[in-house]
Computed example of a mutant assay.
Amino acid sequence: MTTTKQRPVGEMLRQWRERRRLSQLDLAIQADISTRHLSFVETGRSAPSREMVLHLADELDVPLRDRNRLLLAAGFAPVYGERDLQAPEMAPVKAAVRQVLAGHEPYPAGVVDRRWNLVDANKPMLMFTEGVPASLLDPLNVLRVSLHPDGLASRIVNLGEWRAHLLGRLRREIAVTADADLISLNDELSEYPCPDRAPDLDNEVAVPLRIRHRDLELSFISAVATFGTPADITVDELSIELFFPADAVTAEFLRK
C-alpha cells in the first residue's frame, strides 16, 4: 500500500496565483482581502474557510476539477459534481449539444472533452476520419488523429501551419490548467514528424485547415463554443469545435 502526501491548500493557491502571473498584492486587491491575510493563507499560518477557498479559486479562474482539489486539501468536501454525459440530469446539455451539431450541418462540427477526445459529432465530420486506421479511432483523440503520420497528417496540405496552431492551443491550455494528461499529450505530439518550416500567414485572417479529400483540396476555418455557466465538471470541460468553409470550392462541396 502506498500513500500520496496531500499538498497544503496554501501552497496550491500560491501556485495558481503564480500561474496567473499575479502578485500577492494584485490578488488581494482583486479578491478584496488584505495582503497579510492572503500571505498567511499561502504560508499555512491561517486556515482558509470553505468560502475563502472558493472565492480565491473564482478570482484565479481555477477549473472546477481543481477547485474540488483545493477544497479537499483544505479539509472540505468537493462541491462540483462530475456526471456522465448519459446521466438523466445531463439531458438539457445533450440536447443543446445535439442542436448545435445538427444546426451546423452541412458543415462539420464535433464535441471534445478536456483531453481532446471526441465525444460527439455530426455526419459531415466523418470526412476527416475517412481512411484513418481503426487503431487511432478508439478512443478518437482529435489532436492525435490530426497530427499522427498514419492519421490526417499526410492529407493536410499546410501541416506546418496547422500543427503550430494546434500545439499552440494545447500549450495555452496547459498554461491555464497545468493538466498532466495534456502535458503528456503535448510531449507525444511534439515528437511526430512535420515539415520544418515557419507558418506563412501573411495573407490569412485565420489559420486555415487545408486538407485533401478525394480529388479536392478543402479549406476550413474554425471556431470554438463552450458552456458559459457550468456547475458540473463534465460540462465545464466540453468544447464544441465548429468548422466553416474558407473558400467557395469547400462551401459548394459541403452543400452537395
Rank of each mutant, 00 (worst) to 15 (best):
D138G: 04
D138L: 02
L140M: 08
N141M: 08
L147N: 08
D150K: 12
L152Q: 11
L152C: 10
S154Y: 15
S154Q: 15
V157I: 15
R163L: 00
A164R: 01
L167K: 02
L167H: 02
G168T: 05
R169C: 13
L170C: 10
R171I: 09
R172Y: 08
E173A: 10
E173Q: 10
T177Y: 12
T177P: 08
D179I: 05
A180R: 09
A180L: 07
D181Q: 10
I183P: 12
I183F: 09
S184E: 09
L185Q: 14
D187M: 08
D187G: 07
D187T: 09
E188A: 04
E188M: 06
E188I: 03
L189K: 11
S190T: 14
E191G: 15
P193T: 06
C194A: 13
C194G: 12
D196A: 15
R197L: 12
R197K: 13
A198M: 15
P199H: 01
P199C: 06
D200K: 14
D200E: 14
D200W: 10
L201R: 11
L201K: 08
L201D: 10
L201P: 05
L201N: 10
D202C: 09
A206K: 04
V207Y: 06
R210C: 11
R214D: 11
R214S: 12
D215N: 03
E217M: 02
L218A: 07
L218I: 05
S219C: 00
F220R: 02
A223I: 07
A223F: 09
A223G: 09
A225C: 06
F227D: 03
G228I: 05
T229F: 11
T229I: 10
P230W: 01
A231Q: 01
A231M: 02
D232I: 02
D232K: 03
T234G: 03
V235M: 02
E237P: 00
L238Y: 01
E241P: 12
L242S: 04
F243H: 04
F244V: 00
A246T: 00
A246F: 01
A248P: 08
A248H: 14
V249C: 11
V249F: 06
T250L: 00
